[in-house]
Design a protein around this nucleic acid. Structure first.
Lengths: 164, 164
DNA sequence: TTAAATCAGACCTAGTCGATCTGATTAGGG
DNA sequence: CCCTAATCAGATCGACTAGGTCTGATTTAA
């Protein structure tokens, strides 16, 4: 129905890394089971997704018992753009707005007068994604939860870090 | 592959209305066969798409022999947003960013710390689509064709549309 | 009256999205 | 030195939809 939607994969990937960012001061890694339960993501699906994040250098894993995942970089060094492109490759609003500009699918068209519009729109949205880090989201979330008087309805409460 | 792509339908719909905008000074309507051939769009598919545009009041039709389509409004009164929403309904970057704000699919999540990011990104992209009219595209296209392949305009430069 | 056109709806199909199943591998704790 | 907890890898799978077609009815200028 609605157009231009991000995929479930991206949504889940971001929930996962945000989860990790929230716990980046603990030294214990988070298991896929824990993340899936806390963030409301199908466990097996999340497992696949985190693999992508690992292969793109955003997440580190510890195998075996007591294993799990941690961020490979500090939360302020991971942007939405990083995560989105790790999961789905380069963003292209339209087929002709390829990141690799050598694939001109519009060359046969006598006039692709729309190209600049897609480019501009994409530029604007990527500005947001490239400038928003996990640390930003964490800061906002903690801020909001403090204003709202703490987590009232959290199943299995967690202690937010006291200082930022 | 690439994420957040607009659909073929939107691309085709915009090609069609831009085609009509180019010929808005003639009084002869353009047939679907003509538009399809000139814009490189499958004819039968385009027929369906134009029906959507008609039902949303963007295009007017003349039935029977010598019939065809014309814009229902002046090119400077039709924006990309108009066309996009006519074809696919309201834009929502993520499921939780509904235009109808009463459908909160994220309420069960203890913390949807991403919502503001989607909202901000969507706001930015919709600013472009809402402020770009068919007249803007026409003006740019005519300008470019007059210069004839001139790389005079540096990529990234954005000439703000004249009016809303 | 006929040819040129739009209109309406069912229909099709290949691909992808979201997700699961199975099993192999790795490692910590007894 | 096993056993269990965990990640890793690949195949598989159903449902849905994007993209497009087919058929036929209706309208109208010439």
């Amino acid at each position: 129905m609605a157009v231009m939607q991000i995929s479930r994969k991206i949504d889940y990937a971001l929930r996962a890394v945000i989860h990790l960012a929230m716990r980046s001061d603990e030294r214990r890694p988070s298991s896929v089971a824990e993340i899936a339960a806390r963030e409301g993501v199908p466990k097996k699906f999340l497992e696949k997704i985190i693999q992508d994040l690992i292969h793109h250098g955003l997440v580190r894993s510890t195998r075996g018992a007591q294993g799990g995942y941690t961020l490979a970089r500090a939360p302020e060094m991971i942007t939405f753009k990083d995560v989105i492109e790790a999961i789905e490759g380069p963003v292209a609003l339209n087929v002709c707005v390829g990141a690799s500009s050598d694939t001109h699918e519009c060359t046969m068209l006598p006039h692709c007068g729309m190209l600049w519009v897609w480019q501009e729109a994409q530029k604007r949205v990527m500005e947001v994604f490239a400038s928003t880090t996990l640390a930003d989201v964490r800061a906002r979330t903690l801020d909001v939860s403090r204003v709202l008087g703490g987590g009232t309805r959290s199943p299995g409460e967690y202690a937010p870090p006291s200082s930022v």
